[in-house]
Design a binder for these strands. Structure first.
Lengths: 212, 212
DNA sequence: AGACTTACTGACAATTTTGTCAATACCAAC
DNA sequence: GTTGGTATTGACAAAATTGTCAGTAAGTCT
């Protein structure tokens, strides 16, 4: 009449992955308040001491969780930068997508939990983006022209904060602006923003976009 | 030998205000995790049951807190809209400022706690902004020209998500983009963005801003 | 097969946090 | 001054949450 005390024995990597995925989902579902060991353990189908076994304590879990999120964002941004398609439209799409799927929310949560915390790995990315953009602009500009480096940095900065803001409240803001819902409007806005930036970067052959 | 059991008796309004202010400060200081009744009570200089007396339970406090935050944002945006100075620079400043002082963080937190929660009062503001902008553009445009309403809505949308993103991670992003720290860069970026938008709204007499 | 490592779990402990309640103090009205 | 209403509090209760620990089971190595 013994119950079956069968246990699943995973490799540490598998177990950590299982727990981290469950934690990310818990945060995405019920916000930072959902980051409870019991809840995560239940979602992952393990006992809660297992989390402590693999991460030491709650803070350790949060540390790994955030480090991984930052790394993921960083990877996505690097991938976006290295992509052969350099058109503003495609790049913007990739950057906006990088913040999607809960990553934007997670970062926003980190911002509130630890306002002065460095974003670690992604620190260099924006600078690199700006440098690349600036170099490309200089190469494309007529010989005599000079372009302020700050201008390129501001372009990247605008894209970054817009992508973050869009990930957090984009859908609601769009609705509140009276725009039709659905991914179609999303696409159109990105295209519009890309055109705006393209017009700024190459003011000569642009200017008529957005006006009909 | 009796201690002095002096109590301060406030009006319910005063007490609520005191508690709400302490709660906002607690959130701003230690993030959503700082929203503990004890902590708030200590900061407000009252006992924690008083919070429950005035707000029913923790959820009640959160509800009032968020409702007030949304109302405050809404008020600030309305004030920004009604201000006589209609230059893009001044308007942008006011919108960006509206999200400052923890309001952006608070909204971001709400986004994670309650992803589908409506922004309530501010629902109409963006639409109004867009309508006003559109009307002004139509009035200023040459008789034959037509301007897509969507274009005006996108302008407002961009400002909104940029202001939110800036409030949450603006300082860190700027640092990570290699821009010098301090409020000076902040101002310069806003001016840059205002110029970008102004150039888009009136493409004729603009275009040379940002390039030197 | 036996020994060894360790992933895993149930039970327990300690602390924290929300919530309840009766008692008290402050104030206003009569 | 007395009375009544209620804002306020200390003490207590209940639940949740993190963390500990000894024991168990699964897999590996000899």
């Amino acid at each position: 009449m013994e119950g079956s005390p069968r246990r699943i024995r995973r490799t540490p990597e598998e177990a950590r992955r299982l727990i981290l995925d469950a934690a990310r989902e818990a945060i995405a579902r019920s916000g930072p308040e959902g980051l409870r060991l019991h809840e995560i353990a239940a979602a992952a189908g393990v006992s809660h001491p297992l989390i402590l076994h693999h991460f030491g304590n709650r803070a350790g879990l949060v540390r790994v969780l955030t480090r991984e999120a930052v790394a993921e964002l960083s990877d996505k941004l690097v991938a976006a930068m290295r992509e052969p398609d350099h058109s503003p439209e495609a790049q913007l799409d990739r950057v906006f997508d990088a913040f999607r799927n809960g990553l934007g929310q997670l970062l926003a949560w980190l911002a509130t939990v630890d306002p002065d915390g460095d974003l670690g790995g992604s620190t260099m990315i924006q600078r690199e983006f700006a440098e690349r953009l600036h170099a490309r602009r200089l190469a494309a500009a007529p010989p005599g022209a000079t372009i302020a480096r700050e201008d390129s940095q501001f372009v990247i900065h605008l894209i970054a904060i817009a992508a973050l803001g869009d990930a957090i409240y984009g859908a609601q803001f769009r609705r509140s602006a009276g725009l039709p819902e659905g991914p179609e409007t999303d696409k159109r806005f990105r295209a519009w923003l890309a055109a705006l930036i393209r017009a700024h970067l190459a003011p000569s052959q642009a200017g008529s976009i957005g006006r009909i």
